[in-house]
């Protein structure tokens, strides 16, 4: 559905996006994650035809997005991070305005906007002025507006920013509904927990680089490895590390003051035996649990290593 090849965007000497290559298949709900200034919005703006890349190619549904803008506009629905409204315009008229911008006729617009307003739960607000709606309602209306021409790709840039918890939940449900309908959705957000609940694939950007991308499970496995075990303890840390190191299926990843992090290929029984041995050798084990990788820890891990690499590079540059 969306293919980005070797995308670069420079602002003078600053490189906002660096050699970004990405493929998002049809029907995916793709989460774009990254700290502020990572290059997410720049990438989204390039994909939507709002900005020209320094180099690279964007292909949507087999059509080159940079050379065939008019065709591409029919394939994209864009929801920006901030929803601007026109005073004195009703919800129905708002939909009519954007529908007619895609050269749709009034009957078609009326029929589709009725369906879309029902989908976003705003059917009863048709005759309300847009500027009287709550922020959450406006954002849902903006999604309905972006879908008026039935685009193949829906792009949302920080749609949940500034929304209250209820509005966020409603937005999440809406996006899941759309995913269920087979729409391809690209969403950038800082709220990682929500993304992990919605998205089936992610891309993590940092300092203009795409540092990880793919199915969430694949990215997690790539970053965290197969299995992680965390053992918390009060006394006998050295003994516990020694026991772990002696085990052929265990590798000690990190040792904290009250915590040992292990990666392993053990069965449940072997884990129980290992912990039992530690207890038998006077290690005061207060608990143990399997590390479940989540998007927050994944994000922190990935961007942390990037920052460290960046720091090393900078140090090397300054030494030179």
């Amino acid at each position: 559905m969306l293919q980005i090849d070797h995308l670069y965007k420079n602002y003078g000497k600053f490189q906002a996006v660096r050699d970004l290559t990405l493929h998002i298949p049809q029907g995916d709900l793709f989460g774009f994650v990254g700290p502020n200034g990572a290059g997410k919005t720049t990438t989204i703006r390039i994909v939507c035809g709002l900005m020209l890349p320094t180099a690279g190619r964007v292909i949507i549904n087999g059509v080159d997005a940079l050379s065939r803008q008019r065709e591409i506009k029919k394939q994209i629905g864009y929801v920006p991070d901030f929803f601007g409204v026109y005073d004195n315009l009703k919800v129905r008229e708002y939909m009519d305005f954007y529908g007619s911008m895609y050269r749709m006729n009034s009957k078609e617009i009326a029929r589709i906007s009725d369906d879309l307003l029902e989908l976003v739960n705003l059917s009863d607000k048709k005759e309300f002025f847009v500027d009287t709606l709550s922020r959450g309602m406006k954002q849902r209306l903006c999604v309905a507006r972006a879908l008026i021409h039935n685009p193949a790709l829906l792009v949302l840039d920080e749609p949940n920013s500034g929304l209250d918890p209820r509005a966020r939940v409603e937005m999440k449900e809406l996006l899941l509904n759309l995913k269920g309908m087979g729409k391809t959705i690209v969403i950038s957000s800082h709220i990682l927990s929500e993304l992990s609940e919605m998205c089936n694939s992610i891309g993590i950007m940092d300092h203009g680089n795409l540092v990880a991308a793919g199915r969430i499970e694949d990215v997690m496995e790539g970053v965290f490895g197969s299995n992680q075990l965390i053992i918390t303890l009060d006394e006998g840390r050295e003994t516990a590390v020694r026991i772990a190191n002696e085990h052929p299926k265990v590798k000690v990843e990190s040792v904290g003051e009250y915590e040992i992090r292990l990666s392993h290929t053990m069965t449940k029984q072997e884990i129980a035996r290992l912990v039992g041995e530690m207890i038998a050798r006077d290690v005061l084990v207060t608990g143990f649990h399997k590390q479940e990788g989540n998007l927050e820890t994944l994000f922190m891990r990935v961007t942390e290593s990037e920052a460290q690499e960046g720091g090393t590079e900078n140090a090397a540059e300054s030494n030179c």
């Binding site: 939507c48 601007g84 409204v85 911008m101 895609y102 050269r103 903006c142 507006r145």
Partner: peptide, 9 residues
């Protein structure tokens, strides 16, 4: 609202 306008047909 300008960006939205520019992404339309």
């Amino acid at each position: 609202t300008f960006d939205i306008m520019m992404t339309t047909g």
